[in-house]
Every structure is written in structure tokens, then in C-alpha cells.
Simulated assay, not measured.
Amino acid sequence: MDIVHGVSITLAELVDLRHRVSEVKLFSAAGRRSPLIGLHHSRLRGRGIDFDQVRAYQPGDDVRAIDWRVTARTREPHTKLFHEERERPVYLLLEQSQQLFFGSQRVFKSVLVAQAAALIGWSVLGHSDRIGGMIFGDDHFRDIRPRRSKQNLLRLFDQLIQANHILQTAAKPPLPRDALCLMLRRAREVLRPGSLALVLCDERSLTDAAEQQLSLAARHSDLVLLPVSDPLDHRLPEAGFLRFAQGQAELDIDTRDPALQQAYQQQAQQRQARWTQLSRRLGIPLLPLSTAYDLVDQLRLHLHQHQPGYQK
């Protein structure tokens, strides 16, 4: 299969994105998270703790942490020490469907999702967290559990590339309206409390059912929303009469019709407003991405806008 730049992705392209990680600080510094990733650290959604060591009991230690086996063996009170779990599981929830196989600017929306996933994936590994993902499309679902290894990230890339290339080689039925909901429901089954999940999907994929699943997931996990769009999703070109076909169905429209233009733009504005309202209601970051601009430039701008004290 011929790979056309911007239409389909390659492994070399995803691997090369590791060189652009330094251009956008998704993680501020070692041991300190950026304003975008890992925003919410409540007691309910804490990372959890790992056993560290046993030492002699000291006044003020929590008696509930006493190691009774060591205490009985040594006949001196000993207590268990724990440390915060250092490796955080990060899930990339990635859409690769026919509705993303489109783009009028720099790249197709499906490619933009893959590029963003690669950039975030390399950033996660650089911060010593575990990276995994779920990829969903018109008739497939792939699940790669998080691990802190380059091999696991490359495995995710391999599955992502396979799903991406399917879009070019075969005609698929439209994505079911509840596909994002089904993926989120499956994600909730494996997301541990304190996990971070980044949702990269088409702007058009948000439904009532998907919104409900996002609300449920946000109770125990940190979420970041990255809906992807193309300029033609928001405004029709003034190209005159156009014919659209899907299977046996055909549709003729006049893109210069003012009423049609206005109705089309209103629908796009309603979709954008719905994402914004969801983000505000759940208190989670919203980072919309467009095929019209460079990925790193967009993420850098979002990062700046989420800094404390930022004013539009």
C-alpha cells in the first residue's frame, strides 16, 4: 500500500516525534506535573502506595502499620513504611474510524490523532509513567495495557498503524453512534483509581451516552479531552453545487445557500459548546485539535492557556 504523507501514518513518523517532545512541556519537570496532565489529585483518586521497607517502631508511628510478624520474630516493635506509587498508568483512548479519514488542510484527522498519541506517549515514557491505550474504529477494538517500556509503546504504535491503514484499504460502514460510549465503558473496567486517560476522538463523536460514561470515569480517574476537527467541519466552502454519495445514497447541496451555511455553522458551534460545557462541568482540561495547524504549536498554546493567572 502506498503511504501518502498526511493521509496515512508510518512507524518512522511516530518514532521521529520523540524528537519534538522537548518543544512542548507536557510534564513540567521531574517529580512535578504540568497544569494540563495530572490536574486532579484528591484522596479518592490518589495514586496508591507501594510497600517500601520495615524499620523499628518510633514514637508517633501509626500503630495500624505495625508489622506483627517481624515484631514477633525480633521481639521489638517494627512498622511498615510505604511510598507513593511512582509509575502512573496512562491510557490513550484513540479513535480510528471512517469519519476521521478526512482532512482539508495539513493532515487527515485520523493522522492527527496518531501524531498526538505518539507525542504524548513519548512524553509519558520520559516522565517514567506507564503508557497503554485503547484503539477503536468502525468494526475493531484493540487494547494495550500500560507498561513502562519502549517496547509497549511501539506495540501501541503497531496497533495504531494497522487501524489507520484499514481506513485507506477498505470501505467500512459508518461508525455506530455509541462506539465512543462502548469504548469508554470498557475503559472504565480497567482504569485504576488515579489513572490518567486522554481521549482523542472526532469532535462529532460526543453523544449523550458517551458524555455519561465520561462523567462516570471522571469520578475516579483524571481525564483530558482532545476532540479533533477540520476547518470544513465548521464551515462549508463556497464551491457551488456539490454532490455527496455514500453507498446508494446521494445528496446534492448548494454550498452558496446562506441559510445552509448558517445552519451548518450553528451545528458546529453547538458541538464545540457541548465539549466546553462538559469540560467545565467535570473540571477537566479540554484541548481541541485542528488539522489546520501544527500539532506542537497547538499543544504549546493550550499549555500556556492553562497556566495559573492566564487571561484571554
Rank of each mutant, 00 (worst) to 15 (best):
53 Q>M: 12
56 A>W: 00
227 P>T: 10
155 R>K: 09
191 L>A: 15
13 E>N: 03
150 K>R: 13
230 D>M: 12
79 T>D: 06
274 R>E: 05
7 V>P: 01
217 A>P: 01
218 A>N: 13
223 L>M: 11
78 H>M: 10
101 F>A: 13
23 E>K: 11
252 D>N: 10
67 D>G: 09
177 R>H: 14
74 T>D: 01
102 F>G: 14
107 V>Q: 13
279 S>W: 02
253 I>R: 03
110 S>A: 12
24 V>G: 06
127 H>T: 06
280 R>V: 01
204 R>Y: 08
220 H>Y: 02
276 T>C: 00
70 V>K: 01
10 T>H: 04
306 H>V: 05
192 R>I: 10
138 D>H: 04
254 D>L: 05
269 Q>V: 00
183 M>V: 15
249 A>I: 06
224 V>Y: 03
170 A>G: 04
225 L>G: 02
31 G>C: 12
136 F>C: 07
276 T>A: 06
311 Q>F: 03
308 P>H: 02
153 L>V: 12
53 Q>Y: 06
51 F>Y: 15
261 Q>W: 01
121 G>P: 00
125 L>Y: 01
66 I>Y: 00
57 Y>G: 07
21 V>W: 05
256 R>D: 15
66 I>R: 06
276 T>Q: 13
248 Q>E: 15
303 L>Y: 01
131 I>C: 10
201 C>P: 05
307 Q>F: 02
195 S>C: 03
150 K>T: 12
302 H>Y: 06
282 L>E: 04
270 Q>C: 02
175 L>V: 13
38 G>C: 07
190 V>D: 08
154 L>G: 07
53 Q>P: 00
304 H>P: 00
101 F>M: 06
188 R>I: 00
186 R>M: 10
224 V>A: 13
252 D>Q: 13
130 R>Q: 04
17 L>V: 13
6 G>N: 10
10 T>N: 04
229 S>N: 14
253 I>H: 03
201 C>E: 05
62 D>E: 15
54 V>L: 03
71 T>R: 04
303 L>V: 09
4 V>F: 07
56 A>V: 06
312 K>Q: 14
72 A>P: 03
265 Q>F: 00
102 F>Y: 12
123 S>A: 15
194 G>Y: 07
302 H>A: 12
163 A>D: 11
133 G>Q: 06
159 Q>I: 00
295 L>R: 11
211 E>K: 08
249 A>N: 13
64 R>K: 08
